[in-house]
């Protein structure tokens, strides 16, 4: 069995700071990490590999430094890692990204046919959740999004049964492999890499593909040119016109301050008071 897991290297959002006055992002010194949602996809892929054998190939599109993210995936137990990197990819939106990644997956498939493609639910820097469905569509794979559990995989019958998170419940879907799964978060827990894998990852040379190696001939479909969406402006949030009414906890007892606050809220919204009293 051959599984491809698509990952992205993202800035560790927990460490991004925004300047309060200029609203510029203080990116310097912010370490890059594997998109946390992708780790659920990788772990699920590794579990399938544990169960059925085969290979896990990790794929990433990004700058040369993204190699670190791929090496990290190797340490968790992936067999191979490919970084699709080319200046021509810069400025790609979700459509152009899914084009480049699907081309690379096709190329990977030429080496060994791919049975399942995994992606995370979404990235933490783009938050679109659109690249996974895009890849599936471009590759003509059955899309299983927001999968919370793989119920059954039968490689002989070539079918898979999964539970998919929907509004108000879980869909149980059965489909054929190959397929593309976007994995829901908190569905598994990433393993702690054994020492042997850590050393293997340190030694591992990530395969780097430029656009030609990834099988991309038409450069109008990648990067900025291949992106229908145009960012027209980037801006910080605007403060509300009327400033918040402030109480300082240090100038009165917590009790007085709390009572004061209640008074203020209920004067502004008398119906809230009725509702709260009614609730209880």
């Amino acid at each position: 069995m051959h599984i491809v897991v698509c990952i992205k290297q993202v800035p560790d959002s927990a460490q991004i700071r925004v300047h309060p006055v200029t609203n510029t992002i203080m990116r310097q010194g912010v370490p890059s990490v594997v998109n946390p949602y992708d780790l659920f996809a990788l772990e699920e892929a590794l579990r399938l590999k544990d169960q059925f054998g085969g290979r896990v190939t990790v794929l990433c599109m990004g700058p040369p430094q993204a190699e670190d993210a791929l090496k990290k995936c190797i340490s968790f137990g992936a067999d191979d890692a490919i970084l699709v990197t080319d200046r021509a990819f810069a400025g790609a939106d979700t459509l152009a990204t899914s084009y480049a990644l699907s081309a690379a997956i096709r190329k990977i498939g030429e080496e060994q046919a791919v049975d399942v493609v995994f992606t995370g639910k979404q990235t933490i820097d783009g938050d679109t959740a659109q690249v996974g469905p895009g890849i599936a569509k471009r590759l003509g794979l059955q899309l299983l999004s927001y999968v919370s559990r793989i119920v059954e995989l039968d490689l002989d019958a070539r079918h898979i049964i999964v539970e998919r998170r929907a509004e108000g419940g879980v869909q149980v879907l059965k489909t054929a492999v190959p397929c593309l799964i976007t994995m829901l978060e908190n569905t598994n827990e990433m393993r702690f890499a054994p020492m042997e894998n850590m050393i293997r990852a340190a030694r591992y040379e990530v395969r780097k593909w430029n656009k030609e190696a990834a099988g991309i001939a038409d450069i109008t479909k990648i990067g900025l040119k291949g992106s229908p969406t145009v960012v027209s402006k980037v801006f910080g949030p605007t403060p509300r016109e009327d400033k918040a009414e402030m109480l300082n906890a240090e100038t009165s007892t917590p009790r007085d301050m709390a009572l004061n606050m209640l008074q203020m809220i209920f004067t502004r919204k008398p119906e809230l008071e009725a509702q709260i009293v009614g609730n209880v």
């Binding site: 403060p239 402030m246 109480l247 300082n248």
Partner: peptide
């Protein structure tokens, strides 16, 4: 506090 209607500057653990 830029977009709250009411603000309390203080420790949430006591407030």
């Amino acid at each position: 506090f830029d977009f709250a209607h009411y603000g309390i500057v203080g420790n949430a653990m006591t407030v």
